[in-house]
Design a binder for these strands. Sequence first.
DNA 1: TGTACATCAGTGAACGCGCGTTCACTGATGTAC
DNA 2: TGTACATCAGTGAACGCGCGTTCACTGATGTAC
Lengths: 218, 218
Amino acid sequence: MTSSTIDRILDAAEVEFAAHGFVETSLRTITSKAKVNLAAVNYHFGSKKGLIQAVTDRFLGPLTQNLQAQLSAYEQSSHKSTIGEQELQALFGILARSCQQVAQQNQHSLAVFARLINMAYSQSQGHLRKHLTYQYGSSFLYFMKLLRQHMPVMNNEQFFWRFHYLLGTLVFALSSSESLVAICEREYEVSRNLDQIMSDLVLVMARAAQAPITGEYK
Amino acid sequence: MTSSTIDRILDAAEVEFAAHGFVETSLRTITSKAKVNLAAVNYHFGSKKGLIQAVTDRFLGPLTQNLQAQLSAYEQSSHKSTIGEQELQALFGILARSCQQVAQQNQHSLAVFARLINMAYSQSQGHLRKHLTYQYGSSFLYFMKLLRQHMPVMNNEQFFWRFHYLLGTLVFALSSSESLVAICEREYEVSRNLDQIMSDLVLVMARAAQAPITGEYK
DNA sequence: TGTACATCAGTGAACGCGCGTTCACTGATGTAC
DNA sequence: TGTACATCAGTGAACGCGCGTTCACTGATGTAC
């Protein structure tokens, strides 16, 4: 069997990264939670940056692969000429299902994913955005292409902005879901799971996608 | 005249906090950009935490005050029995205008605001959320109360979630706006300003607020 | 089968560095008598 | 008006600390002959 040290590090890192972010999590915290020697991270992953990449690669691979497969199945099955709320829901549903599938393997990976997206759209992190686009962009661009076909009223620029407004909805919900679930339980004594949140998000994003566009920009 | 050191520190800190966040900005960076001695921060603000609070207080005060005033004017003028997209747009428009007014004073304060909200909904930052609620919560709760009246179909729990989905849209747009504007200019050769983004957001949030609700949760 | 060597996972202790903070100090301005 | 003292903004240098990383080392397993 291959050493479990690597997996224990990855699991612990994922939990800590999800909760406190990449910068605010120290290798000492990770290795102590993983019950592993401090130097093991640099031994196996070369550096902290290498560990971060390993953690993100572990779910971005499956996520994009799953998304890609579902999207091409969708493209072939549906008559893409029809446009409307149902088609938008179907498309966002595919994205949601990819997320859910990834979350089944690693519970905290979606929170890490959200942090990654947030980071990528920070100023001074253009290199990260480029790297993600280069490595995993194709399936997301595929998603955007299909979504674009369902929103033909807008021009490209308007679509760009609308897409990112919806991305914000998703990213915030994913990164804050643990807090929101906790507050919800305390406040309303109702527990929510990821499936329910995802179902909500699909409906909300599909509706928001159809919001009117503001007047022409000069 | 009162020393400009304090203002220079606050201005520099706001820019750096907006771009890199609170933790990843060092006092050495701030004081060198402000052309001020390193020890001046601790002299005037006591600690880094004190500086963060001073930076956020500077815009949260005006923001909440403006929001409060607009909301009570709205509550008195409108016949709140009518519900529909127009009323939702009006309410989100008030929020947008408060943001715009604050941004006029300090250009980067909205990005700091977004970072603050994101932080507050991180796990392990419950104390920050409590502090913000205690200090500035009343005007936001007022906003939620009025919004709640325009979304009577949902129960409280469903409203809670919907509200936070919309909050995510706003927060992501605010925190990523600089990057998005830059990408948009590069990609489409169209420049966008905050006013246009805010107009968009009002329409998107008003529409998303009306998305159907998923089936009953056990 | 036995021995010499190579490879590899893992370790304990130390390294240099950047961080927030502290402290004794300066120099200017205001105040009391 | 002149002098002694207090207050306050600002400074330069140092402090201790936690960080990511490095390095010499151990012990187990595999391989060549």
